[in-house]
Design a protein around this nucleic acid. Structure first.
Lengths: 193, 193
DNA sequence: AAATCAACTTGCCATAGGACAAGAAATGAA
DNA sequence: TTCATTTCTTGTCCTATGGCAAGTTGATTT
């Protein structure tokens, strides 16, 4: 059982000096979100991001028909951020909502900028994280075009079983680009294999 | 008629000092690609990126069935880069191929790093460009899920008419997530409206 | 315990878009 | 200028997935 600070899982002793770690970690603020509360909503400029210590969060957008489409899920160890709104300082199209009670570590834009421009390793890690998100998004995007719905479900099941287990079917369905009806059928098929 | 350096369209006098501009611009190398040649191919690590002065470039991946799917198109003023491979130094899944003869301005990774860590404005612009690409990718990804094929075509037609005019139908089709047959029919429908 | 509500399943039918194949039409090569 | 190749169109038929509605089941409230 270790009781080190949660953020030491995010910022490792390999990449940062003890001094840098202290500087960084002190800037984060612990915040708690209760189930169903919104971390971010459409039309606002995202002025914070969060590292998730516990709980589940969903981000989604409304499409032109008023349906809502899941764009991502965040859980322990993930960074919950709307990259474009946070960095371009534009009103977002996204909503981020806690699916369960959550414990998060929050950083605001101005503090981020200070760390980004003053600590080289923070800069590198930030860039790497962003590029990692880009990569994941690209793979998902290609998958929606190239793979049948069943394969997309199976990939998610394999890569992120905790999402399947903790998020309702209808939210997963829109993330996969199908209806809840279809996902229910696919899941049935996969189950009996 | 102005004969200023092409890259001054990319790095503006508003954001950089004359000194910085000179430093940056001298680092770029002018390269020419002939029609059908590859700037990057699957399995390689992307060690360069390019600003396109003229011509058209397509990036694509092979799906599991061996079909190839367009992931992006690049033309004058665009940055042609595979973000994940360039920054994470991983072998890429992407191919980038010149659709026409092209004139580009090339930068390699090590030189990029030097500029990134030494010039604040270069760093900010780089981050903004990356986030802009992320934003475009996200919108495309959502559109593939939420919008019918015809709407996706019309959006592309409106936002990037030069792509429609210069890229073959089959390449555009896979970008939109449909077959060339379907795109042909959609185009016919849209034409007679 | 009853009542309510959300989550999920299932059936029936509808439809967007895919697969395949046969032409046109355009482009390029010899 | 002829031949070949690629691009694009169009027809026929097919399939994965959607739309809608009627159940279940399970959770939550009163």
């Amino acid at each position: 059982m270790d009781d080190k600070h949660f953020l030491l899982n995010i910022f490792s002793q390999e990449n940062f000096t003890a001094q840098e770690l202290e500087t960084i970690i002190l800037k984060f603020k612990k915040v708690v979100f209760s189930k169903n509360s919104f971390l971010l909503s459409e039309g606002k400029v995202a002025n914070n991001y969060w590292f998730v210590e516990s709980g589940f969060i969903r981000s989604f957008v409304q499409d032109t028909e008023g349906r809502n489409i899941s764009t991502n899920f965040y859980s322990t160890g993930d960074i919950a951020i709307d990259w474009p709104s946070f960095f371009l300082r534009n009103p977002t199209r996204e909503n981020m909502q806690a699916l369960t009670d959550c414990v998060c570590w929050q950083l605001d834009f101005d503090t981020f900028q200070t760390l980004f421009h003053s600590i080289t390793a923070f800069r590198e890690q930030g860039r790497t994280t962003l590029v990692g998100s880009y990569f994941a998004l690209k793979n998902h995007s290609i998958s929606v075009i190239a793979d049948p719905a069943k394969a997309r479900y199976q990939q998610l099941l394999q890569k992120k079983p905790h999402i399947i287990q903790n998020v309702s079917l209808k939210h997963i369905a829109t993330y996969l680009g199908i209806t809840d009806t279809s996902l229910s059928r696919i899941r049935k098929e996969v189950a009996k294999e």
